[in-house]
Amino acid sequence: MSAQKYVVYYRVSTKKQGESGLGLEAQRTYVEHFYSDKNIIQEYTEKVSGKDVTNRPQLLAALDLCKREQATLVVAKIDRLSRDTEQALSIYRELDGRLESCDVPNLDKFTLTLFMAIADRERELISIRTKGALVEKRKQVGEWRKASEAFLTGTASAEGTKALQAKARTNGNNRRAAAMIEVYRSKGMIWMEIADKLNEAGFRASRGGKFQATQVQRLYERATAKA
């Protein structure tokens, strides 16, 4: 019986972390301590915010490799994977439970849900404490912040409305598909091959049908034009 395969995913969330390497080195130390004797077949590193997994091509590539090789995805800390409970559980289901984190021993669906819920709660408490501190500061010194010119003239509201409309038009499924297309394209795959890969993974085009080669090419061109 062949040894279990592992794929490691590292993420640093800020430009400073990415340049200094401190966040990355700390994660590597965790993984090397717990997985030095494991069959690690690939490592992926990303310098991006953890807010949205659909905008992380390295994570999507890691997930794709795990599914193809029946490998286990490893992260040093679970918040390097995601800070959102639903996103973390979605990845857990996508990998049929083949997910491990150095800071959560014996990770399963229950412990993952519990750990993420505690993290969510802590973020809420931090937000409450921050808002409370701002209220107290206003009581002591009054309102110290000044409204911007854009806010006073009303242009900020118009710009905000446009931004919300643009966001509403953005299809989350297409963003994730576009990231996968970029990964496959970098491997030299043709449009039809990529379309087949997306359809096999359960992706659907904007109107709900299967991806065709022309749709894949169009989505790729739009995504790379924005880069």
Rank of each mutant, 00 (worst) to 15 (best):
Q87Y: 09
D37F: 08
K38A: 12
D84T: 02
T72Y: 02
R138A: 06
S2D: 14
L60H: 04
I41E: 08
A150Y: 10
L125Y: 14
A88S: 09
Y92S: 05
A178D: 09
T45F: 11
T14D: 01
V183M: 03
A177P: 03
R185V: 03
V104Y: 02
Y9T: 00
V216L: 02
Y184C: 06
A163F: 11
D108H: 07
F211C: 06
A225Q: 12
Y35P: 00
R28L: 07
Q58K: 15
V74A: 03
D84A: 03
E124S: 11
I181C: 08
S82T: 09
N106A: 13
E124G: 05
A213K: 15
L198V: 10
N199I: 01
K15I: 10
Q70T: 14
I181T: 08
E149C: 07
I190M: 08
R121L: 14
R176T: 12
T14Y: 00
Y6T: 04
K131S: 14
R176E: 15
L89I: 15
K16M: 06
S2H: 07
T14C: 02
A225N: 11
K137I: 11
K5L: 08
K131D: 03
R123Y: 07
A178P: 11
G21T: 10
I126N: 10
A205S: 14
K197N: 08
R93L: 11
R129K: 05
T153N: 15
K197H: 08
D196I: 11
T161V: 10
A168M: 12
E46P: 07
N106M: 09
Y35G: 01
A179S: 12
D103N: 14
K187R: 13
R98C: 04
G97R: 00
Y6Q: 04
G18P: 00
Y220K: 10
V7W: 01
A88N: 04
A62H: 04
I190Q: 12
I78A: 08
R56S: 05
G208W: 04
L73Q: 04
K47T: 15
G209L: 02
Q87K: 08
I41V: 09
E19A: 12
K16V: 12
T113P: 01
W144P: 08
L164N: 15
I91T: 07
E182C: 15
M180G: 03
S101R: 00
K15A: 12
I91Y: 02
R207H: 10
A71W: 01
A133W: 02
D37C: 05
S186F: 01
Q70A: 13
S148P: 02
A76M: 02
G132W: 10
G188H: 00
Y6E: 03
Y6K: 07
Y10R: 07
K47S: 09
R222H: 13
E143F: 10
M1V: 13
V141I: 12
R121S: 14
Y9E: 03
R80T: 01
A71S: 05
